[in-house]
Simulated scan of single mutants.
Amino acid sequence: MSASDVKERAQRLLALHRPGDPVILPTVWDAWSARLAVDAGFAALTVGSHPLADSIGKPDNEGMSFDDNITRVAQITAAVDVPVSVDVESGYGETPVRLIEGLLSVGAVGLNIEDTVHAEGRRLRSPQEHAELVGRLRAAADAAGVHVVINARTDLFLRQDGDEADRVDRAIDRMKLAADAGADVLYPVGRHDPDTMRRLTSELPLPVNAIGLPDQDDPASFGPLGVGRVSFGPYFQAALAARGNEILSRWT
């Protein structure tokens, strides 16, 4: 893939993020699942760390290495002609420059970066520390000449961190810092009730990523909440696994 192709895919991915008219990014993990999604008509994809790790027999939460990740991503980008974003967990202990250069080397044009540091006892980065990392990723992408789409994720809801009474406030403050540092999308990962999601999308300055259950949620339900992006996390793979078990159980 040429440098101009990579730049074009990055711009295409960024332009797909429209609050109220969300881009749906099926979460894939190999060339087969990527082709399945593209053949179904999706305009872009995201690679999920959980299903990818499962597919190579390693645990999520950085049980695989960054090299494991981009080896599989290279197979995906070679198989499909759409923009691909990649979950890089908390960064695998790599420098921002290495993360950006590694992703661009295999044709990926977006990333998710979370604030749980798995290699350090799953500690939560401070809001300022996470924003600084986002800023360094943006600087590395700028230096490479590609507007890599940075999806800044917070795990406050997933971890049920701190007092529930002010968790939304703290998440908003944290993600605003990430936005100021150069993020393009904000990902308060978790399943939120409609009122919480409306508050997040109305108070945050960038498109918000929601997680969808592909076999259960109404695709039309996210736009009215102001969502700008929907991905499936591990739930697409889980839904396929459930159906696979139904088929296989007929033969055992």
Rank of each mutant, 00 (worst) to 15 (best):
D169R: 03
V86D: 12
L36W: 09
D54N: 04
I24N: 01
L16V: 09
R250L: 15
A165S: 14
W251F: 12
T95H: 09
E246D: 14
G244M: 06
D142A: 08
A238N: 07
A139E: 14
S49K: 00
V208I: 13
T46V: 15
A239L: 06
G63Y: 09
E164G: 05
L124E: 08
S4P: 02
V6D: 03
S4G: 02
L225W: 13
T252N: 10
L45Y: 12
T95I: 13
R167K: 10
D5Q: 08
E132Y: 11
S202A: 12
D39C: 02
A241W: 13
L158H: 04
H17P: 10
P96S: 10
T27H: 01
I211H: 01
L25H: 03
A144M: 11
R199S: 03
L158E: 07
S105Q: 14
L103M: 09
D218W: 08
G228M: 07
G145A: 11
A183W: 00
V208F: 04
V189P: 04
D87G: 01
G57E: 07
D163N: 06
G121C: 05
S105K: 10
Y235F: 15
E246V: 12
R125G: 04
L204I: 08
I24M: 12
S4C: 04
L124D: 03
K7I: 15
Q237L: 14
